[in-house]
Design a protein around this nucleic acid. Structure first.
Lengths: 189, 189
DNA sequence: AAATACAAACTAACATCATTAGTTTATTTT
DNA sequence: AAAATAAACTAATGATGTTAGTTTGTATTT
């Protein structure tokens, strides 16, 4: 059952180390050479576990979406008071703490990989559920979800890129943004 | 006054061609080799006009911000009816039509380059002006601007990355998002 | 008009990177 | 113990960015 090979390496260990490296160096600075060195093997040996750089990035993307989904789910379960704010904070925190894998998760999903598509749908579903209190039309729910995701990704992305200049009171900015979007979605009386 | 050299090339022509190439191939696929070939010169000759790939990307970023600012300004001047929606549409359209240069414009501004900082501030100022009707406190204006930029960048970025799945009714989604944010920012009566 | 200066092209060379092919070796299975 | 297999290796190739040093065409100066 348990096959042990020379260095105890398998695909998952390689991807895991790649994620860690990408978080440290930045997604675009991740190289197979650096990864191999870190694992104590030569670059070509990586091809025993992954198909190449593109394949590695795909696997990182899937790990990223799994982590993100898990973080969002956890936020919903924990904070029942204001799930929308909780999800927003969890989303941004995840991107902040796992910049490498978050960048990978933005890769255009390959339709050939069902798990990929599936994870995307799960995340959309989770966010859709957040819109329930607003009693929106089905079409509007789609718009609401797209808007919410845009806000969160945009905020996380700009923040990561240093696009906000001085990083002062960013938490308040996130809160304000989400609060404002929520208030705007509320039925007008 | 007018110096003509061998191939009529100058820094600006190189950057211009690089932008065009990046828009065609994608920002990350832009290589000095491809750029040189397109200009009919050898790769090292590029170094007579630019300092290297990083320098080229910086120049592309500045051109991108100039183009973006210009597009937003134009939208404000033209559509006096709903300047916020007009700016949002102009922003997303610019990112859509100039994907390469828009990607470049997201580079973290180098504090050593004044023009860069300056353009960022101009864009922030332009967006700040949009918040005037809401009579917000100074702190709130900052939050409002950050939120608005996050929405627009997130929308443009996710759309570009194919993150929205089926690209159905994206214009309506953008309208909904902006409308909702606007409504939420309105003083409650 | 001839000489000089200079900018912009070139060739040659190097380091790094991803990738493929073929080989060795350690572990597992028979 | 022998055979099979998986995972490491070496060697080699083609791209890429970059630097150094050289040639050459245009512009300026004499």
């Amino acid at each position: 059952m348990s096959r042990k090979k020379r260095a105890g390496l398998d695909t998952d260990a390689v991807v895991q180390e790649a994620i860690q490296l990408a978080d440290e160096l930045g997604y675009d600075k991740l190289t197979l050479a650096a990864l191999a060195a870190r694992l104590g093997i030569k670059t070509p040996s990586l091809y025993n576990h992954i198909q190449g750089l593109d394949d590695l990035r795909q696997r990182m993307a899937i790990h990223g979406l799994e982590g993100l989904y898990s973080a969002l789910l956890h936020a919903v379960k924990l904070d029942a008071g204001n799930p929308i704010q909780a999800v927003a904070e969890a989303y941004v925190a995840f991107a902040d703490e796992n910049p490498g894998v978050y960048a990978a998760s933005l890769l255009a999903p390959d339709a050939q990989v069902p798990r990929w598509q599936e994870l995307g749908e799960q995340i959309v579903q989770l966010i859709s559920n957040l819109a329930e209190p607003y009693s929106l039309e089905p079409d509007e729910v789609i718009h609401w979800v797209r808007g919410f995701r845009s806000m969160l990704h945009g905020f996380a992305s700009l923040r990561q890129a240093g696009g906000f200049g001085m990083p002062i009171a960013l938490d308040e900015s996130l809160q304000y943004m989400v609060k404002t979007y929520m208030r705007g979605a509320q039925p007008q009386r």
